[in-house]
Amino acid sequence: MSATPIATTRSSAGMPTGLLAVWWVIASEIVIFGGLLASYIMHRLAHDAWSAHAANTNTWIGAFNTLVLLSSSLAAVLGHKAAEEGDGAKAARQLWYTFAGGATFLVVKGFEWAMEISHGYTISANTFWSFYYTAAGLHATHVLAGIIIMAVVARKAARNVDLHHVELIGVYWHFVDVVWIFLFPLLYIAK
């Protein structure tokens, strides 16, 4: 039952099955974030007044988190390289750096939100803040899911088991990074 079916080992489309599936996941994530961000952008364009609300977001925290995610992506891709060279221990170490980046991102985000909520900018304060928390929250959920899977993959990679998973979680992680690259200007810079 638990043995891998022969089906999984075939690749008539010329790509490893896991990597192909991750790209399909990403395609379906593009439309989830796409729908949400498109809704946000059309509201934003219609409400000039929202720039006043957006002025209350903290650019420096957003920029710091961007830096953290970009660096964690670097670690993930270095882990991928190490995994392909067959160095499981090094790949695992890089994945733990990525994990640390994701965790830092979430902690910083937690403080940021606590600060904003304490100033009265709650999710129901205004539709701008509703979009702000929903979009960033959906992204943070992906970060959380990513670091949990990352931990599992890293523990296995350290024992040189399932090294090809390092690339898969990496590709997912870069996608989460790309989403943040767009969220950052949308929520923090455009004021």
Binding site: A27, V31, G35, S39
Partner: peptide, 22 residues
């Protein structure tokens, strides 16, 4: 896969409208 994404986002927004006062 290509069409359900916006509705998933929309369902989250609807759920927040119902329960969080957005």
């Amino acid at each position: 896969m290509a069409s359900v994404g916006p509705l998933i986002a929309g369902a989250i927004m609807l759920f927040f409208d119902q329960n969080l006062g957005t």
